[in-house]
Simulated scan of single mutants.
Amino acid sequence: MTWNWETKDWPNFTFELSFMQAELDKFFILAGELLGVSKVVSDEDKQILMLEIITNEALKTSEIEGEIFNRESVQSSIQRHFGLKSEGKKPNPAEFGIAEMMVDLYRSIDKSLSHELLFSWHSMLTNGRRDLVDIGRYRSSPEPMQVVSGHLGRPIVHFEGPPSSAVFGEMEKFMNWFRETSKSGSKPLHPVVRAGIAHLYFVSIHPFEDGNGRIARAIAEKALSEGLGYPSLISLSQSIEKSKKYYYSSLEKNNKHLEITDWLGYFANTVVQAQKRSIALVEFVLAKTRLYDGLNPKLNDRQRKVLERVFREGLDGFQGGLGLKNYLTITGTSRATATRDLQELVEMGALYKTGELKSTRYFLNFKN
């Protein structure tokens, strides 16, 4: 098996952009639309929006790798990193680390990509780990860096990275390429193309003992933000996680050669979907404000607490909708009071109801 880094022309990737030009054009159109709609959001809601996007990215980039974190813990940690008041659950070391890395990514748009920045991200990401030899530095093991699956006796090798002795030199080339392809570099690329190549290029080197996928996605988001000149405010990993199997199969398909048109096509579509979701999230925050402005004087403390909890779930809300059991758990009130509160929220137009009896569920009613 020959890997892309073993080919004669490595790392000169080749691609054809004509068939994905519509997606590339959409990137700047949607970026402008997102920036425009964000301007009508209050400062308080902008803060909520930023926290929501960074929290989603921290959670989803971890879920892609099979790690499931507590949403409130991660968001609480992000709030603390921004110097904001937080009453959420205390995060564990891994939750603290991913939150710290995502906040630093948001703040590091003006920083040049460097070995030191990547080492810093890796140290944050591996906070609390005791199973790794190389933390905050490139891998040093003489053993092959392989991505494998299957049974112990019959492993399937999906990818093998360059030997550890070659990693620093490969990363020097990567840093030079990243500088040259920036909008102020000697060989500028469209931000989406640059981000897509950066992601694939980085994971092909696989420079760290662990955490390469999460750092690759962070580098891609940095490339997009640099291309715009401000934080892209999208949750790229959330879009990737929705079709995780296709993401991994696309990476595997493109780690054996240098022609990567299909990878860039997939990546461009994923970025556009992430932008559309961010626009929907801004509209969600605006709808939340309108709903509260209209209903706040009529809500009792229990109803207000439940609505705030539902809104914290974001665009997707409670899986399967809000049920009576959820209401009881959140408020600690009686079943009769909870039933009456929910009926009042429906009559006010805050929620709409589906199903009957045990199947009854409630959803936010933005149409009103």
Rank of each mutant, 00 (worst) to 15 (best):
T2Y: 03
T7Q: 15
P11C: 08
P11S: 10
N12E: 12
F15C: 02
M20S: 09
Q21A: 13
A22W: 09
G32R: 13
L34C: 02
L34A: 05
S38M: 15
S38V: 12
K46G: 06
L59H: 05
S62N: 12
I64R: 08
E67G: 03
I68S: 03
I68M: 05
S73W: 03
S77Y: 01
Q79P: 00
F82H: 07
K89G: 01
A94E: 11
A94W: 00
I98R: 08
I98P: 01
M102Q: 06
V103S: 07
D104T: 07
D104Y: 08
H115W: 08
F119R: 04
L132A: 12
L132V: 15
G136C: 15
R137W: 07
P142V: 14
V148P: 01
L152H: 04
H158T: 13
F159V: 04
F159L: 10
P162F: 03
S165Y: 13
G169C: 00
F178L: 03
S184H: 12
S186Y: 02
S186Q: 06
L189I: 04
G196C: 09
G196R: 06
I197L: 12
H199G: 04
G213R: 02
R214E: 05
A220E: 03
A223E: 02
E226Q: 11
G227Y: 01
L233F: 13
I234Q: 05
Q238M: 11
Q238G: 11
K245N: 15
K245G: 13
Y248E: 03
S250I: 08
L251C: 08
L258F: 08
E259V: 15
N269E: 13
T270F: 01
V271S: 04
S278H: 03
L281E: 07
L286D: 02
R290N: 09
L295N: 03
K298Y: 10
L299Q: 09
F311E: 05
E313L: 11
L315M: 03
G317T: 06
G320R: 10
N326I: 07
L328D: 04
I330H: 01
I330G: 02
T333R: 03
A336V: 12
T337M: 03
V346Y: 02
E347G: 00
E347R: 14
M348Y: 13
G349H: 08
A350Q: 08
K353T: 12
F363K: 09
